[in-house]
Design a protein around this nucleic acid. Structure first.
Lengths: 248, 248
DNA sequence: ATAATAGTGTCTCTCAGACACTATGAG
DNA sequence: CTCATAGTGTCTGAGAGACACTATTAT
């Protein structure tokens, strides 16, 4: 019999954040060091409790701002706004040893921040390569390097979501600054997918997809070589045809 | 500061189910009639509280079995097992007028059941065409036909998930009985997408996709016309290349 | 000059879509 | 016979991948 709220087990509800960016040609995730037990001293995903009067997405955006200073613009102006979406919910009974915690994980795709270590109120926050965080625990991972709770699983789900989403949506631009070149966008795809892409075919593909890229007029030479045209993200959210991941 | 469980707002956690099937060439969702306030007498999605020692997916499977008798086989033998996956989590503060309820919605894809009305302990359970349930509230929908709470939104998200998932996965077979014909599978695609597909191209495509269909030897004439080969779902979960939805 | 990246042109092969045609049942 | 569905063959056009070639900067 659904919905008899007079009697229900007590749950704590939190949001956890998988914040991804591309730094030095590698997909990186934001981690914070835990200051208390359990898992004291280990790295974990940022997150916190949902407040009594707060939407889930608002709680995620608030935690993100607290930890990184990043703002998310869900609607309208894109300027350096990170993309935020709900990822999945994790509620296995034993996942927090202290009590029953249901965590609604969110995925954030952010451009590379100027500050290497975001200044949050949490002790230490640090970008770490996703590949390192997800390396098999069977191999030589030191236990201090493994993520607390079930956060490795959550991170793996977030990375997989990001990998597949940039195939058929224009979200790869969320990893880029407001204005970017085709080469920078290609390096995002290469870092997230872990592959090499042909620069010429990639250029033809993305510039030929309507609504993906809007030329903004200027050029830049920050990558060296011939100056490249600058673009900003176009209005298209879904790419048709999609970008194709090699050798899948 | 994440994770200080000593002090947290009280939440109720429920699972809601979007159970979809294809009946008489239409995508249908399972609805139950509410016996109590709020929204008494209106239709709603099946669901219920997560128990204190219960996983989210287990709670969803339990509710599904209670309402429909359907079993889900997550691992191994497919036989008439419905597909169950987590859909999304809805936790807007005002979504249940009585208290703060966070609902983890799950999506179930099931073959057409022999019993038109599944016998659950809930009052009336009924398959209703998804198109009717999702018709614009601005038009001539009687208010008694609208789904309770935010369930119309949840259903819409579930339908959209199903529509996109059958593109790149073999999940359309979850709508079919254990053995089915290419024509029956095509009618699933046509019902879920709401389009017409060329039978000849569809046949060539699905039989040519490795791992999608496994011939099982027999033939059937239950659709009339020339006897059709029977297939069962193959081991492939992800389709490459994907099925293409027309005119997107 | 060389090295590096940006961008265009062209070829080929695969595949989606359109549709003619044959096969095999029910009435 | 007609009608319905199953299944195959063939053509065409779009596009992905491979790669030759040119363009424009820095050193």
């Amino acid at each position: 019999m659904p919905y008899d709220p007079s009697e229900f087990p007590p749950f704590a509800v939190t949001v956890d954040l998988v914040v991804l960016t591309v730094r030095r040609h590698a997909l990186c995730a934001l981690t914070v060091r835990r200051g208390e037990d359990p898992y004291q001293g280990q790295w974990a995903l940022p997150g916190g409790f949902v407040r009594a009067d707060e939407d889930l997405a608002s709680a995620a955006a608030r935690e993100l701002a607290e930890e990184t200073g990043l703002r998310t613009q869900d609607a309208g102006s894109w300027h350096a706004g990170a993309h935020l979406e709900q990822l999945a919910t994790y509620g296995e009974p034993g996942r927090d040893p202290r009590m029953r915690v249901v965590s609604v994980a969110h995925l954030v795709l952010a451009p590379d921040l100027p500050a290497p270590t975001p200044g949050g109120d949490a002790g230490g926050a640090q970008w770490k390569p996703a590949g390192e965080l997800l390396a098999d625990t069977d191999t030589d991972r030191a236990s201090g390097e493994r993520l607390a709770f079930d956060h490795a699983r959550i991170l793996a789900d977030g990375v997989e979501r990001a990998r597949s989403k940039i195939e058929y949506s224009s979200l790869a631009a969320a990893f880029c600054p407001p204005e970017f070149t085709v080469g920078e966008l290609r390096r995002v795809y290469e870092a997230v997918w872990g592959v090499s892409l042909d620069p010429r075919n990639f250029h033809r593909k993305v510039t030929g997809t309507p609504g993906f890229l809007v030329p903004v007029g200027g050029t830049t030479t920050r990558q060296g070589g011939r100056p490249a045209q600058l673009f900003r993200a176009g209005g298209a959210t879904v790419l048709n045809p999609p970008m194709l991941r090699p050798d899948v």
